[in-house]
Simulated assay, not measured.
Amino acid sequence: MPTSYVKFGESKIRNNCPKCFAQDGLVFSFSNKIVETKMVSKATKEIKGELNCSHCETVIYPALWTDEIDRVYLYNLKRMGSPQTYTRFKPLAVGLFVGITLAIAGAAFAIYSLQQQ
């Protein structure tokens, strides 16, 4: 099952970068996990947060976060809220559903017409 992440929120923070020590260059990006199958596309409640520095253009991994950055992350995560979850059926699933429904209706009509004779 291929998965992808779709960004649903972004927040700039005023903390210093732990790598280059520049101020006002950190940006949190929050992404929602999307699971794709042949029949269904489904958005889950799983959220991935990523911290980037626009000055040194690097990803700041959680091991380098200070306590202040961690608190700001939790605050922004709560502020963004949980993303919308959905289940979307692809054309293959819709076609199978319609085909099965028509087959059942045809069988029921055939049985009904045989009983009427």
Score class of each variant (00 low, 15 high):
T85N: 05
F8P: 03
L51C: 03
E50V: 15
K48P: 00
F30T: 01
F8I: 07
C17D: 07
A43E: 00
E57M: 11
C53W: 01
S82F: 10
K90R: 15
P2H: 11
S82H: 10
F89Q: 08
S29L: 04
L96M: 12
G99Y: 01
G95P: 00
Q23Y: 03
T87P: 00
P91T: 09
A108G: 10
S11P: 00
A103Y: 03
P91G: 08
V40A: 00
Y73H: 12
E50K: 12
M1F: 12
E46M: 04
M39H: 07
N76R: 15
L51Q: 05
F89C: 02
V35Y: 00
I60S: 02
P62H: 05
R79E: 13
A108P: 02
P18I: 03
S82M: 12
E50W: 00
F97Q: 04
V59F: 06
I69Q: 07
N52E: 09
W65E: 03
G99F: 02
R88W: 06
T85E: 11
R71V: 05
N16M: 08
L96I: 09
G49M: 05
S31L: 07
T66H: 07
S54K: 14
S82N: 14
I34R: 02
G49L: 01
A108W: 08
A105N: 01
V40F: 11
T66Y: 05
I111T: 12
I47E: 01
S54L: 11
L74W: 08
F28R: 01
K19Y: 13
I111L: 15
L96H: 00
Q117Y: 11
A107Q: 09
D24Q: 08
L92I: 11
L64N: 13
P62G: 05
I100D: 01
T44Y: 02
L51A: 04
I111Q: 08
E46G: 00
A110P: 01
V98C: 03
E68G: 02
R14D: 15
P62N: 04
H55G: 00
F30K: 02
R71G: 12
K45R: 09
S4Q: 14
F89L: 15
C53V: 02
L64F: 09
K19S: 12
